[in-house]
Amino acid sequence: AEKTGIVNVSSSLNVREGASTSSKVIGSLSGNTKVTIVGEEGAFYKIEYKGSHGYVAKEYIKDIKDE
């Protein structure tokens, strides 16, 4: 049951290796980017990222929809 969301930041949002603010940053997404959410862990969504997965803070994702 995948969902999509939109990155809701003015600059960019860090994509992390794990569901923690201390996890390594593996990339970033600019505002209004559409993401595919494959799961959630605590305050983070697990998303599809560059052929693999990454984690982003839930508070910066809006317009969550079921695909």
Rank of each mutant, 00 (worst) to 15 (best):
Y49D: 01
S20Q: 11
K46W: 06
N8M: 10
E2D: 11
I64W: 15
G31P: 08
S10Q: 10
L13A: 06
K34R: 07
D66P: 14
N14D: 08
S22Q: 14
Y49C: 03
F44V: 03
K24R: 11
A19F: 04
V9Q: 14
R16D: 01
V15D: 00
I37N: 00
T33C: 05
K62W: 08
S10Y: 09
V9H: 10
E48L: 09
H53C: 05
V15R: 00
K62G: 13
V15A: 01
I26E: 01
S10N: 10
R16E: 01
S12I: 15
K46V: 10
K65N: 13
N8I: 08
G39L: 05
K65W: 14
L13P: 04
S12Y: 14
I61H: 01
V15T: 01
F44P: 00
I61A: 01
G27H: 02
V25Q: 05
G51W: 09
G51F: 06
A1H: 12
V7W: 01
S20M: 09
S11L: 07
V38N: 05
E40P: 02
G18K: 09
V25M: 07
Y45R: 01
G18D: 09
E40I: 13
G27E: 02
S20H: 11
D66F: 08
V9A: 12
G31M: 10
K50V: 07
D63C: 05
E40G: 06
L29H: 02
G54D: 00
S22A: 13
I6G: 03
S52H: 14
I26M: 07
Y49K: 00
I6W: 14
V9W: 03
K58V: 05
I6C: 05
E48Q: 09
K62L: 10
T4E: 07
V35H: 01
S12Q: 15
K24G: 12
N14F: 08
S10M: 11
E40S: 14
F44Q: 02
E48F: 13
N14R: 13
S10H: 08
A19S: 06
A19V: 08
A19H: 06
G5W: 05
A1L: 08
V25C: 05
A1R: 04
T4R: 03
D63H: 15
S52K: 07
V9D: 07
G54V: 04
S20L: 13
I26N: 02
G5M: 03
D66L: 13
I37V: 05
G18N: 12
Y55I: 00
G27I: 03
V15N: 00
G18F: 11
A43Q: 14
S10K: 15
G42M: 05
K46Q: 10
L13G: 03
G42K: 06
S28F: 10
A57V: 10
I61Q: 01
L13D: 02
V25S: 10
Y45F: 05
G51M: 07
E48G: 05
S20D: 08
T4V: 14
N32T: 08
Y60I: 03
S23R: 04
I47V: 08
K62D: 13
I6V: 15
N8G: 12
K65C: 04
L29R: 01
E17R: 05
E41V: 07
K65D: 15
V7P: 02
V7C: 03
I37K: 01
G5T: 03
G39F: 06
G54L: 01
E67P: 14
G39C: 04
T4H: 13
N32D: 15
D66M: 14
S28R: 12
I61E: 01
D63F: 10
V35G: 00
A57E: 11
